[in-house]
Amino acid sequence: MAVPRARAFDAVHAAVPAMLLAGTVALCMLAVEPVLVAVSLAGALAFSLVARGARPTLRGLAWQLPLLALVCLANPFFSASGSTLLFKLGPRSVYLESLAYGATMGALLVAVVLWLQCAATVLTQDRLLALAPRRARAVPLLLGMVAQLVPQLLRRSRDVRASLAACTAAGPRPAARDALTRTSSLLLSWSLEESLERADSMRARGWESGRPRTAYRSERLRLRDAASLAGIAVLLVLAAACAWGLCAQWHFYPRMTAPAPWWAYAPFALLAFLPVVAELVARLRERGRL
């Protein structure tokens, strides 16, 4: 039997990885600058290899990389702009700036997909349910009831229409509007009758009995979790300010500007590689090497 992998974020409250990954995904989608996109893609790929494993990551890249190439190669034909002409393909001119913009957008799309896959690995369904307020935990019940009642209502509608069509002793078939009115009236009365029975059944099981329903909280927010959230918030603000400044001075058209100094990318790089560093540190601690 395979031993389950250690997760760096299992020892902290679910709000910590939720805030970190949600902020990372948001900045990744908004920061359209080649170096920032490359850093985000590298961080997402590294975290996916560590957290999800090499085989699922490579299986996903089998369709993600062709999508990146498609976006990169298709953009020059839809946006023939720029000042550095590479070659002409019939009446279309392919510019370096258009090619770079397409490559950046394709890499951004792949990075966002990888981050979302990593978030789904770290934030399992029970951890997301623990983050939801108490009232929101009834949403799965409501969705389950809707998924059950809608097909039942459609099936009964077909039965009502078939019964009305088969009843020829009452005279000719009514018009479409009259038939719709009779079908709706029968379905409404049928649904109201069953709603009373369903409400009595749920009340007998304790729903809305007047007392607050107790729930076991598997995760509690501790002092170190609050400190981690504060540190992540500061890092997100610094990374957002870094991305805003870099994107403001970068232009694809008519000519690409020069990248900023390497230290200007440090806050965003720290945010992008924080999940994989935390995962590696947790695994080294588990093996007793730290």
Results as ranks from 00 to 15, higher is better:
209 S>H: 15
149 L>I: 12
191 S>E: 12
258 A>V: 13
30 L>D: 11
224 R>C: 10
141 L>C: 11
207 W>H: 11
179 A>Q: 14
169 A>V: 15
90 G>C: 11
221 L>T: 06
71 V>D: 02
137 R>D: 14
289 R>T: 08
82 G>V: 01
176 A>H: 12
73 L>H: 00
20 L>Q: 02
117 Q>D: 05
237 V>A: 09
198 R>N: 12
78 F>E: 05
93 S>F: 03
170 A>I: 08
165 A>M: 08
289 R>F: 10
192 L>A: 13
190 W>C: 04
151 P>N: 09
79 S>M: 15
116 L>F: 04
170 A>W: 05
265 Y>T: 07
101 Y>V: 00
48 S>I: 10
3 V>G: 02
165 A>P: 05
238 L>E: 09
176 A>D: 07
160 V>D: 02
68 L>W: 06
167 C>N: 08
73 L>T: 15
185 S>N: 11
15 A>Q: 05
229 L>S: 03
287 R>K: 15
18 A>W: 07
71 V>N: 00
17 P>M: 13
209 S>A: 13
35 V>Q: 03
93 S>L: 07
193 E>T: 13
10 D>K: 01
191 S>R: 03
44 A>I: 04
89 L>K: 09
286 E>D: 14
63 W>G: 10
147 A>Q: 10
275 P>T: 09
163 S>T: 14
9 F>Y: 04
11 A>V: 07
18 A>S: 12
137 R>C: 06
186 L>V: 13
9 F>N: 00
130 A>I: 11
